[in-house]
Nucleic acid binder design. Structure first.
Length: 280
DNA sequence: TGCCAGGCTTCAC
DNA sequence: GTGAAGCATGGC
């Protein structure tokens, strides 16, 4: 990764050289639900109470509207920019025809390191749900309960904190279905009584974090692994949903060789998931 | 119009 | 421990 400050149209932005990053592929990879497409290869991203605009001007080049400090403190970790994903791709078994084809369409998918609280709520909503409806539910939550902010002329809503979501009836009528009660209780246990301690979870090992998450009402194996992967940065987490399970059954005779990708199976899982999204 | 979705809890066995 | 039913909602 290399970076510099570039002045474009009178604005100072960061120009980052970063391999194996494709914004469109990430946007459609089912790990983030609040990116706003502003133009071809250009997205507005609201996270951590802030906002930025990113544009992929050419292969391997990312223009991002932020200061050097913001890049280092927020966006480089978010894009996992220090990690060479090319090594993950090189390690894929050359005889694995399915994965070799998958990386042709998904070579630019990276694992975003997202806010833990937002990731927990988001993936509770995701259960037995489809991506376009998940996006709609989250958007409605933010519009009703988030804070309206303005970033250089772009309005965006923050993701509401646990105290806000803990209020009984706060999410009523937003179409969350049976998931609403899971999120209300989750928020209350975070904000009201400390039964769930996010900072503590963030300090745990993968195994402990996964077990702790699974003990939460409404969170099972799959959602716990999504939170571990996208909210805690544990790349060994390997979430198995209907799509992944289908591929394992149809392409791997029911047994995916996860041991070949020890420590980063979650990255491989995202290549599979994105590939399925593109070809469904 | 049914089928399906980044699944989970509950309950029977 | 395993398996099946029931769950809310709306996109397609």
């Amino acid at each position: 990764m290399r970076k510099c400050i570039k002045t474009i149209e009178g604005k100072e932005i960061m120009r980052i050289k970063i391999n194996n990053l494709d914004l469109k592929q990430i946007a459609e990879s089912g790990q983030c639900f609040r990116w706003v497409e502003l133009g071809p290869n250009q997205y507005g991203i609201p996270v951590f109470g802030t906002f930025t605009i990113v544009e992929q001007t050419q292969i391997g080049i990312l223009d991002i509207d932020c200061t050097s400090e913001e890049w280092k403190g927020i966006w480089a970790p978010y894009f996992d920019a220090e990690i060479n994903y090319g090594l993950y791709i090189q390690s894929i078994n050359p005889k694995d025809n399915y994965l070799q084809e998958a990386i042709n369409t998904s070579f630019g998918v990276r694992i975003l390191k997202q806010d833990l609280w937002e990731t927990m709520v988001t993936f509770v909503i995701s259960q037995n749900n489809n991506i376009s409806r998940i996006k709609g539910c989250i958007e409605k939550i933010c519009q009703r309960l988030g804070i309206l902010r303005n970033y250089k002329g772009h309005a965006f809503y923050t993701f509401p904190d646990a105290l806000t979501l803990a209020e009984p009836g706060a999410m009523e009528g937003l179409g969350l279905g049976y998931r609403e009660k899971y999120i209300t209780l989750l928020a209350q246990n975070v904000a009201w009584n400390g039964l769930i301690n996010l900072a503590e979870i963030e300090s745990m090992s993968y195994g402990d974090a996964r077990a702790t998450l699974k003990s939460i009402y409404g969170i099972g194996d799959k959602i716990a692994d999504c939170i571990c992967l996208f909210g805690l940065g544990f790349k060994e987490a390997f979430p198995i949903d209907r799509w992944i399970n289908r591929v394992i059954e149809e392409q791997y005779d029911g047994k995916f060789p996860i041991e070949n990708y020890a420590g980063y199976a979650g990255v491989i899982q995202q290549y599979i998931f994105h590939n399925e999204m593109v070809h469904k």
